[in-house]
Computed example of a mutant assay.
Amino acid sequence: MSTLRVTAERLTILEHPNADALELAQVGLYRAVVAKGAFRTGEFAVYIPEQAVLPDPLIAELGLTGRLAGGAANRVRAVRLRGELSQGLVCRPAALDGTDLAAASAADEDFAERLGITKWVPPVPVSMSGDVTAAPDLLPWTDIENLKRFPGIFAPGDLVTVTEKLHGTACCLTYYAGTGEVHVTSKGLGAQRLALTEAAGNLYWRAVRGYGLPELAAELAGKLGAARLGIYGEVYGGGVQDLGYGVDARRELPGYAAFDVCADIGGRLRWIDPADLPVGELPLVPRLFHGPFDLDRVLELAQGRETVTGRGTHIREGVVVRTADDTYSPVLGGRALAKVVGDAYLTRKGGTEYE
């Protein structure tokens, strides 16, 4: 999940190929459909990303009453307008009149609170929730930003691994070598330093036990000399999200695929590609590419059909890109890690987005 920030951005204005009265405002690699003549290349405007929830006065000001997503028609999501994908909103809200947007952009100022914009958090089904306990020593999550928003994360030729992004719910197991204790949590609960109490019907614990993850974590911690070992994976199947990948998680063992591992070795966190682990049968997210970074190739891989089932049953959610040696990104101020979400996935009907 990426972070929600509402920022001032320098625009590049492109022609809309199918509408004389519309244009495309480009921010990074995102494009938002705007009225023709409303903005010019080089000007600055406010960019409101997908999953933003807008207050009613701002919706009315922007002329979007009844036109946004969600039951309250207040959520920004990707749409196609005259055949072109529009991701996010480009505007100049009245509340920011007099603000030097160029200076705000240079300072990377976040206007979300000032504009009353919040991030959409979907309700969580009962099978994905449960009783919780405090877990202050959980290993951290990495928010995965979108490569379209930050296209400079990778340089051409950087050695990268591209894996398929699965549409499930993220699960983290933290193993503590000193006590043998295991904490299991979701992304949303993990951000609050809360772990789920083990229960037979809980989705995450069913996957953790069903795939023997505590035993794998203990084995790996021993081999690496880690005080804490985290295995991050996607739990999926029918009843989890709208894409089930041929598994009915309500009646059988949920699907599971690991996408990241974190080892606390000597007080320092080391992030490891699960495909490089010296342990046994850990299900992994599909690897689609390993080699020199090429932006066009990555954008292409984000589209198409999933490879989990081997039959292309569903559309592909997208891809995740990471450097092979897990390098630092000055663009993000953290790990060089990014995602690209497929166009068809963004505009599908009846989708679910539980964390």
Score class of each variant (00 low, 15 high):
residue 1 M to A: 11
residue 7 T to I: 15
residue 11 L to N: 07
residue 11 L to M: 10
residue 16 H to Q: 07
residue 19 A to Q: 02
residue 46 V to A: 00
residue 47 Y to P: 12
residue 47 Y to D: 01
residue 47 Y to V: 03
residue 48 I to L: 15
residue 51 Q to E: 11
residue 56 D to V: 06
residue 57 P to R: 00
residue 60 A to E: 13
residue 61 E to S: 02
residue 62 L to T: 01
residue 64 L to W: 07
residue 65 T to I: 04
residue 74 N to H: 08
residue 79 V to G: 03
residue 85 L to T: 04
residue 89 L to C: 08
residue 94 A to V: 11
residue 96 L to V: 12
residue 99 T to H: 14
residue 99 T to K: 13
residue 99 T to Q: 07
residue 99 T to C: 14
residue 100 D to K: 13
residue 105 S to K: 12
residue 109 E to V: 10
residue 112 A to F: 05
residue 114 R to K: 09
residue 118 T to G: 10
residue 124 V to L: 14
residue 124 V to C: 09
residue 125 P to D: 08
residue 129 S to W: 04
residue 130 G to M: 08
residue 138 L to N: 11
residue 138 L to Q: 10
residue 144 I to Y: 03
residue 146 N to C: 09
residue 149 R to N: 03
residue 149 R to S: 09
residue 154 F to H: 06
residue 158 D to G: 00
residue 158 D to H: 01
residue 160 V to T: 00
residue 161 T to W: 00
residue 161 T to R: 03
residue 161 T to Y: 01
residue 162 V to E: 00
residue 168 G to S: 06
residue 170 A to F: 02
residue 171 C to F: 00
residue 173 L to F: 09
residue 173 L to M: 02
residue 183 H to R: 06
residue 191 A to T: 14
residue 192 Q to Y: 13
residue 196 L to F: 10
residue 196 L to C: 01
residue 198 E to C: 04
residue 199 A to P: 03
residue 212 G to A: 14
residue 215 E to A: 15
residue 225 G to P: 12
residue 232 Y to G: 01
residue 232 Y to A: 03
residue 237 G to V: 10
residue 237 G to M: 12
residue 242 D to Q: 05
residue 246 G to Q: 13
residue 247 V to E: 05
residue 248 D to C: 05
residue 248 D to F: 08
residue 253 L to W: 00
residue 253 L to I: 00
residue 262 C to K: 09
residue 264 D to R: 04
residue 265 I to N: 11
residue 269 L to C: 10
residue 270 R to C: 12
residue 270 R to E: 14
residue 277 L to K: 14
residue 278 P to R: 14
residue 280 G to S: 13
residue 282 L to F: 12
residue 285 V to F: 09
residue 287 R to D: 06
residue 289 F to K: 02
residue 290 H to A: 07
residue 290 H to D: 04
residue 291 G to F: 06
residue 293 F to I: 00
residue 297 R to E: 11
residue 298 V to M: 00
residue 299 L to R: 12
residue 306 E to D: 05
residue 307 T to I: 13
residue 309 T to R: 02
residue 312 G to L: 08
residue 315 I to A: 00
residue 320 V to Y: 14
residue 321 V to Q: 10
residue 322 R to I: 09
residue 327 T to K: 12
residue 329 S to C: 02
residue 330 P to G: 13
residue 334 G to R: 15
residue 335 R to H: 15
residue 339 K to V: 08
residue 340 V to P: 01
residue 344 A to K: 06
residue 344 A to R: 11
residue 346 L to A: 03
residue 349 K to R: 05
residue 350 G to D: 06
